[in-house]
Amino acid sequence: MATISGVNLSSPRIMAKAAKTPKVQLLNVGWLRCSWKQSAQLGAIRLRVPPVHAAPDKISDKVEESIKNAEEACAGDPVSGECAAAWDEVEELSAAASHARDRKKESDPLESYCKDNPETEECRTYDN
């Protein structure tokens, strides 16, 4: 959160109502993207970064749970606000899970290296 703390700019800023926001930001799930970025600075060891599946799995659990909740919420009254809100939560989490999968794909160091250097030995693919 370096960009937020200790900033001293002379110009006016429109502030979001920070009072409302709960202080949980650093307890969020650790993305692969994040750990990869830190380790990428060390260069040589980057290929040894173990794949972190925790984040997408955690979202997958949430998707599964939200579907169950939505089915329950709609059992009584399928046109209620609660039902719509519950299915909306499913949509939101499904989209987040899909984005997490995309990010994971992008952050694979071998994949990104091979995109730029497809001819190198470690990037060759063989049929049969």
Binding site: M1, L9, M15, A18, K20, P22, E92
Partner: peptide
Amino acid sequence: TVDKPIYNHVTGLLDPP
């Protein structure tokens, strides 16, 4: 420059801006 809130799609909470 503005301090924009962040909606966290994983937790469903509003994070610090």
